[in-house]
Amino acid sequence: MPLSFGRLKRPGGKAMQLDYVQREIEHMRTQVQRQRGEIRQLQRAGIPTSSAEALLDRMLNKIDDLCAERDRLKKEQPPPAKGRVLGGRSW
């Protein structure tokens, strides 16, 4: 059986799912900023932006869904262990 360090106890566990969801949220936020910049460029050029704005809305909805999933995964994680780590020794 492999050693476990920190939260990663087994492949495909909740902690790995949480890490994935958090990375995906950050990636999507970067994409949203890029999309907003493209919308501004289109507006300056006088090009209609309705389809770009619809895409932005879908992206924002996806981020909301991912945030809800992240919050659910965080609630399912066991609380961190409390107590002394070094077995009561005072250094």
Rank of each mutant, 00 (worst) to 15 (best):
V85R: 08
E24M: 00
E53C: 01
R70F: 11
G13W: 07
R34S: 09
Q41H: 03
I47H: 14
L3D: 02
P78A: 03
I39T: 09
M28Q: 08
P11E: 11
Q77M: 08
R36I: 02
I47G: 01
R7P: 00
L73K: 12
V32S: 04
K62D: 11
R29K: 15
G12P: 10
A81S: 11
R36N: 02
G6A: 05
V32L: 08
R70L: 08
G87C: 01
H27Y: 13
A81P: 13
K9H: 15
C67R: 14
I63A: 13
G13C: 11
R7E: 12
S4H: 12
P80E: 02
P11T: 08
G12M: 04
Y20W: 14
R7C: 12
K82G: 03
V85E: 10
A45Q: 05
R23I: 13
K82P: 01
L56H: 03
A68Y: 09
R89A: 01
L55I: 15
R34D: 01
T49M: 06
K9S: 11
Y20S: 13
D64A: 11
G87Y: 08
I63H: 14
R36Q: 00
Q31L: 04
G6M: 06
R10V: 05
A15H: 08
T49D: 05
P48V: 02
T30D: 05
P2K: 13
A81D: 13
Q77I: 03
Q17V: 03
R84G: 11
L42Y: 06
R29Q: 06
Q35P: 01
M59D: 07
D19H: 11
P80K: 04
W91Q: 05
Y20L: 10
Q33P: 00
D65S: 12
S4N: 11
A52H: 04
L42R: 08
N61Y: 03
M59L: 11
K62C: 07
P11M: 10
I39H: 06
G13A: 09
P80Y: 15
E76C: 10
G13V: 07
A54F: 06
A52V: 05
S51K: 03
D64L: 13
G87V: 01
D71F: 04
I25F: 07
I39Y: 11
K74D: 14
P78V: 02
S90R: 02
M28T: 00
C67G: 03
D65G: 02
L86E: 06
P79L: 01
P11W: 15
Q22P: 00
Q77T: 09
K62Q: 07
Q77K: 10
E26C: 12
E53M: 05
A45G: 02
N61S: 09
R10G: 15
D57Y: 07
R58T: 15
V85I: 09
G46H: 10
S51M: 10
Q35D: 00
R34W: 04
I39C: 04
Q22D: 13
R10K: 14
R72Q: 11
I47Y: 04
L56N: 08
E53N: 07
D71M: 07
Q22T: 11
A52G: 00
L3K: 02
P11K: 04
F5C: 05
T49N: 10
S4L: 04
G46T: 01
N61C: 02
S4Y: 14
L73Q: 07
V32T: 06
E38Y: 14
R70P: 06
V21Q: 07
L3A: 13
V21K: 02
